[in-house]
């Protein structure tokens, strides 16, 4: 049972995309609702702070991250990795990592799960968004919402895909182009679950 969410997002002043990441962070706070949550944002978004906050928790938690990423890491505005396949891949033993970031589903996710994480969520290609279009936030955060509600990873994944379908149906007549990018995100959403349970 999830008791806590660590909400990590990049809203550093120098970050061009801070508004989108902040919107994701705000939505994560809303989803956390009755749960406790910890914020890691701005200049605090560093590997040492992540380690410190994770170590302080002895309950089931989700580590949520909205920032830039690549196939092997999540990184901050200084291009400094705060989660990666080579520095702190063992950190999330038994817990869920949920990312809204580019490419982390390629290698970071499977590496974290191999190193003990319960589950990893992310995208296996570049994550696309349009600032001010709420459907991008809604779709990217749906699975987190379902996990917090107590659904299994498999069910949460299906409900996330359903949310994408719903938003695509709502928006394709208004903006076919931006909707095509939503579909691209849908097709790149992945989760890796540990088989250890």
């Amino acid at each position: 049972m999830i008791k806590h969410i660590i909400i990590a997002y990049n809203n550093a002043v120098k970050e061009n995309d801070r508004r989108f990441f902040e919107d994701c962070g705000d939505e994560a706070k809303r989803i956390a609702n009755q749960l406790k949550y910890t914020i890691i944002s701005g200049e605090e978004l560093r590997a040492d702070i992540v380690s410190e906050r994770v170590a302080s928790l002895d309950v089931d938690y989700v580590f949520f991250a909205a920032s830039h990423g690549d196939s092997r890491s999540l990184y901050n505005s200084e291009f400094s990795e705060y989660v990666s396949t080579t520095t702190n891949e063992y950190l999330f033993n038994g817990h869920i990592i949920y990312t809204v970031a580019c490419l982390c589903g390629v290698e970071l996710g499977s590496t974290l799960v191999r190193n003990g994480a319960k589950c990893f969520w992310g995208y296996r290609d570049k994550y696309i968004f349009s600032i001010g279009e709420p459907s991008y936030i809604e779709t990217s955060m749906e699975a987190l919402n379902q996990i917090v509600l107590g659904n299994s990873m498999e069910v949460s994944f299906q409900l996330a895909l359903d949310k994408y379908d719903h938003c695509i149906a709502q928006s394709y007549e208004d903006n076919y182009f931006l909707t095509s990018q939503l579909l691209s995100n849908k097709n790149n959403l992945v989760y890796y679950e540990s088989q250890m349970e």
Binding site: N16, D17, F20, H68, C102, L103, K126, Y127, I128, F129, S130, I131, G132, Y176, F177, L178, Q181
Partner: peptide
């Protein structure tokens, strides 16, 4: 067709800057 559509969007959309982000590219 996409080119024509983009031209229409350009004329209709006041938010021409930062219309779409692909990862860190705006």
């Amino acid at each position: 067709a996409l080119e024509e559509w983009m031209e229409i969007q350009k004329n209709q959309n006041s938010n021409n800057e930062n219309y779409l982000n692909i990862g860190s590219q705006s």
